[in-house]
Write a protein that binds this DNA or RNA. Sequence first.
DNA 1: GTCAAAATTTAGGTAAGACTAAATTATTTT
DNA 2: AAAATAATTTAGTCTTACCTAAATTTTGAC
Lengths: 220, 220
Amino acid sequence: MKKSTSTQDYLKHIYELSEGGEPASTNDLARVLKVKPASVTGMVQKLANEKPALVEYQKHQGATLTPVGKKAALEVLRHHRLLETWLVQTLGYSWAEVHEEAEKLEHVISEDFERRIAAALGNPTRDPHGELIPTPDLKMPQDDSASLSSLRSGQSATILRVNEDPNLLRHLDELGLIPGIRLMVTGYSPLDNNLTIKVEKKSFVLGLNITTKIFVEVEK
Amino acid sequence: MKKSTSTQDYLKHIYELSEGGEPASTNDLARVLKVKPASVTGMVQKLANEKPALVEYQKHQGATLTPVGKKAALEVLRHHRLLETWLVQTLGYSWAEVHEEAEKLEHVISEDFERRIAAALGNPTRDPHGELIPTPDLKMPQDDSASLSSLRSGQSATILRVNEDPNLLRHLDELGLIPGIRLMVTGYSPLDNNLTIKVEKKSFVLGLNITTKIFVEVEK
DNA sequence: GTCAAAATTTAGGTAAGACTAAATTATTTT
DNA sequence: AAAATAATTTAGTCTTACCTAAATTTTGAC
Ligand SMILES: [Mn+2]
Ligand SMILES: [Mn+2]
Ligand SMILES: [Mn+2]
Ligand SMILES: [Mn+2]
């Protein structure tokens, strides 16, 4: 029942690509997995014919996960996000550096290792990017964050998560807008949806392009 | 140039089996690698035909490492031993539990990861079992330890390493005879080569079967 | 609704690295 | 020195997961 590295990566990426409701297309999977579309077709057909089936697949309609496949995907995702958190906390990796390392380690660590790092980290619920970490019984917790773009003047909030786009990440890192930081909205421009936000003593004006990609917990 | 997990394990075990001077035999490799002898023949032939060659191989004569193969073997061994040290130090693994975990991780960590854990541990020279860790430039350090069996009454020493035999390990663990412990020889029996040793306030009499498998640094 | 472009699938191959069964070579025993 | 036993190698398969090239299906522009 132990799944290959390849299978685990397929399941993880099918999970991520189909989170929005749409099945993951052959082409999109090929892109994120860095293999040819023809290879993806072969692999999803195989995963759909396993017993029990890991994916639901109809020709030309893309792939979604069965409950069994989803468990397996969340297992890998839990490993990945715990590992990223742990590499950052204990080995001084930067936010940006951890991904590749976790991408390889996620497939080889034992359940014991998983429990040990989770415990050592105090059973965190989010990774360094702010992504939710699946629970030990492999459920994805409900995301209670709100988009920064939905806030208005006077509201305060703490950053939980930012989109993983590397360019955005670097930009926000320079501004100090990273998970854990507290901010306050001091202005809103209805015409262009710009928000003025204040962090510590500094203020920035941010466009919709940015504010929709920052997720926060609003103070009541 | 990046070597497969399989190749890395072959090289590591050829290194270990041929440390005594004799080439590693097909059968012995099959045993430690948990693979059939026929598979070993195929693989060592392949490794001998790589350019540059990783092993020296003559039909029926077993395999030894070329300088290139030896570097690669020491690389894996360094990873393995650093990982074991680190898992014990930072995640509370016991002495006995680490091996399997390190066996898988050794093949996937980056050089950056290696440097980070080495630095975090203070660049250790021995792993938790007391085995020497290859240096960053992949040389095996000179082993300056002496067998406990060579000591005589009045000499004091610190345990550096014990043989990895699981039964012996458990026994010595109960007696508190583990790397780092200081002991003194208080008696020697020429007829059976038994040694009486004192650790803290306790004394034990140990036979040659045990004393030849404990390695120490003698105090001058 | 037709038709070209884009996406997807099929068919046929390759490379690693394992296995089994049979053949060969080496080592012991007598 | 021959026979028996043990170790090793060869030959032929299998599985996994990739690839390319060609065929097909779907979609979007007119
Ligand atoms: Mn991965
Ligand atoms: Mn797990
Ligand atoms: Mn290994
Ligand atoms: Mn290394």
